[in-house]
């Protein structure tokens, strides 16, 4: 049953992505930047999805510490891994965009740098998990670190913004309206890329979740075998 829902959701994601890409390909090219501008249709929703993932990771970590139910720990690790993948996608698309528009792969601007630091922070979370053998201790320590990381993210952003700013400002929902409404809908609409990517993140998380459950079961069977 759960699998069927998952397959259905996966198929919906593929259909939605095909539809969005088709739609976006049909948009006219942006005046000053050309075709590369269209990267924004994935660059921005990937960042938003990654942020949502870190929020879910925070909630799951807190819930684990309260209930000590390993389901929450599995959610935390699954969603963190998926979030990292999306953040990586965000970094890579941003980097490609920077190469074309600014002529450099990397420009140390506020958002790219913040994203990179966040990526390193959460990569540290996964490394910490790998290094701890005992499942309960691993879950507790990882949850604490996840909370720390989440608190750190806005401060990191603030500090880097203080440092320098070179990134093009936000172009959505602003009154000077350089971004046409049908383009906005292609990202934020109910069938837009944001929805597609969020559904993709959900599918990946659920798959990762069942892996994590099996992993824990395996681990407990191994311990059981050792105890015999």
């Amino acid at each position: 049953m759960r699998n069927n829902i998952l397959y259905g959701l996966g198929a919906a994601v593929i259909l939605l992505l095909v539809r969005d890409i088709n739609l976006i390909a049909g948009f006219p090219q942006e005046a000053s930047q050309g075709a590369i501008f269209k990267i924004i249709f994935f660059h921005v929703p990937m960042a938003i999805t990654a942020m949502l993932c870190s929020s879910v990771a925070l909630i799951a970590s807190v819930m684990f510490l309260i209930t000590r139910n390993f389901k929450y720990d599995a959610v935390a690790v699954a969603v963190t891994e998926v979030g990292l993948a999306f953040l990586l996608g965000n970094l890579v698309t941003g980097s490609i965009w920077a190469r074309i528009i600014w002529g450099v792969w990397w420009a140390w601007d506020v958002r790219l740098t913040s994203a990179l630091v966040c990526w390193l922070l959460y990569a540290g979370y996964l490394m910490l998990r790998r290094a701890i053998e005992e499942p309960t201790q691993r879950a507790v320590f990882a949850a604490c670190f996840s909370i720390f990381a989440f608190i750190d993210v806005p401060i990191v952003y603030l500090s880097i913004r203080l440092f320098r700013t070179q990134h093009p400002g936000p172009v959505f929902f602003t009154s000077n309206g350089s971004f046409p409404p049908d383009w906005t809908a292609a990202i934020f609409g109910p069938l837009g890329t944001l929805m597609a990517l969020m559904m993709l993140a959900t599918v990946l998380t659920v798959i990762r979740l069942s892996q994590e459950d099996s992993q824990r079961e395996l681990d407990s069977l191994r311990r059981m075998a050792h105890a015999m």
Binding site: F70, R216, D219, S220, R223
Partner: peptide, 8 residues
């Protein structure tokens, strides 16, 4: 007392 799912 559990270590993961394993009841110690």
């Amino acid at each position: 007392k559990f270590y993961g799912d394993y009841p110690a």
